[in-house]
Amino acid sequence: MSETTEAPVSLFEQLGGAAAVDAAVDIFYRKVLEDYRINRYFSNVDMAQQAAKQKAFLTMAFGGPNNYTGQDMRDAHARLVKMGLDDSHFDAVMENLTATLQELNVPENLIAQVAALAETTRNDVLGK
């Protein structure tokens, strides 16, 4: 009875695909803008563009189709690293990401997988 034979479903599909990314971006980006620890790194930018970048990031972290390159991530954040961006800020973003997924009632085991994928960008974001 406990046998499960269905085809493996990807993380992206389990999370709900592109629609889930849209729902998550909406919550996540608001959290980031309201977070006094990190929102100065998000000021003075075109918000639509910024939201598009968050969407690309979350798509990648959700295991969805993406063109992620570490070099792009490095280039995009180099200016912020000069402003003092460090691990504490990356941790804050991770916290907001986890809180977003909890708010959307994503099961803990999937949250852990998303967090692990997001974590792979840390060194590129921080220029290490």
Binding site: Q49, A52, K55, N67
Partner: peptide, 8 residues
């Protein structure tokens, strides 16, 4: 740029 319909 992104080729994913995101960056416009």
């Amino acid at each position: 740029s992104c080729r994913q319909g995101i960056c416009q």
